[in-house]
Design a binder for these strands. Structure first.
Length: 330
DNA sequence: ATGCATGAGCG
DNA sequence: GCTCATGCATA
């Protein structure tokens, strides 16, 4: 009985997407590169004054990348993972500077909404505001929701501390290793319960935890695969743990007493950036992860992509890289 | 499982 | 305009 169909319409604003060729090709070499290449700052200035030249060069670089990536396979996955892979030596310096590093500081998250998709735009359901940018400021703003596990702000990891009695976080809760272990346990137990990721997300509402609504399959999946930010992982852990305990408890009950009961709008079109363009973007990104609006416009024009698409791509790329760096260092 | 996108909150 | 948390759509 939870009637909600968590799909609310919500049209993106692409009147007519470029409908590029759909290709799925990932050059995972970037992962490696990113993990090791952690001091792009040095080139910021250069990029600032470069223009066609560098762009062209970046593209040339991209071309090289193509050749390379076509010839071999890489051991790494293209996307960052939270896994503690100690193999990659993190340059002592450039480690995890939280977002504040670049230029845009802030960063809020979604809000903790109730699961009752109130508006036709039911976008953010779940908790969101959880960890926020807790890492940047040691005082996580979300704590005022009582949801976020508090903690110091050391380096990347720290959700602000909050002792509302709601959730006190211990060092172990923020320990990457522990989170990783929990995620693994969570997945196994979830599967044992025969529940899908989507089910979990929707079931969270039933926990009646203040501020906690539902979450999407995507988020549950990312939690299990550790592809969320560290703070996000920390914020979600207690919630998912609560669900797990609840679910297992319910199942036990069911086993004891057999019986009881067992049991529209328009869709947004996803833009797909073709492989060649993607490679170029990656090349640009390697040179300058935070291009100015003008640069973005220039790149967009060169690649025949919408400026906003390029901007968002860079944003997402930065998010990914951040995770990557973090996991690489932990 | 993951790519592209939205939107809150912040500077 | 960015970061961050999160979602829809899709491979």
């Amino acid at each position: 009985m939870m009637s909600m169909n968590s799909k609310q319409p919500h049209f993106a604003m692409h009147p007519s997407l470029p409908e590029h060729k759909y290709t799925t090709l990932h050059s995972s070499s970037e992962a490696i590169r990113r993990a090791c290449l952690q001091a792009p700052q040095l080139q910021s200035n250069i990029f600032a004054s470069l223009d066609e030249t560098l762009l062209a060069r970046a593209e040339a670089l991209a071309a090289v990348d193509i050749a390379v990536s076509q010839g071999k396979t890489h051991p790494f996955k293209p996307d960052a993972t939270y896994h503690t892979m100690n193999s990659v030596p993190c340059s002592s310096n450039t480690t995890v500077h939280d977002g504040s590093g670049g230029g845009g500081g802030g960063g809020g998250g979604g809000l903790i909404s109730t699961s009752a998709h109130p508006h036709p735009h039911s976008h953010m359901h779940g908790l969101s505001h959880l960890s926020h940018q807790a890492a940047m400021n040691m005082n996580s703003p979300l704590t005022h929701h009582g949801l976020l596990p508090g903690h110091h702000g050391g380096g990347q990891g720290g959700p602000g501390l909050n002792n509302n009695g709601l959730s006190s976080i211990n060092d172990s809760d923020t320990d990457p290793r522990e989170l990783e272990a929990f995620a693994e346990r969570f997945k196994q137990r979830r599967i044992k319960l025969g529940v899908t990721q989507a089910d979990v997300g929707n079931a969270l509402v039933n926990l009646k935890i203040p501020g906690v609504g539902s979450l999407s399959q995507s988020t549950i999946c990312r939690f299990e695969s550790l592809t969320l930010s560290h703070n996000n992982m920390i914020a979600l852990k207690p919630i998912l743990q609560a669900w797990l305990e609840e679910a297992e408890g319910a199942q036990r009950e069911k086993l004891n007493k057999p019986d009881i009961y067992s049991g529209g709008e328009k869709k947004r079109k996803r833009t797909s950036i073709a492989a060649p363009e993607k490679r170029s973007l990656e090349a640009y990104f390697a040179v300058q992860p935070r291009p100015s609006s003008e640069k973005i416009a220039a790149i967009a024009e060169k690649l025949d992509l919408k400026k906003n698409v390029v901007r968002v791509w860079f944003c997402n790329q930065r998010q990914k890289q951040k995770r990557l760096k973090f996991s690489a260092c932990h």
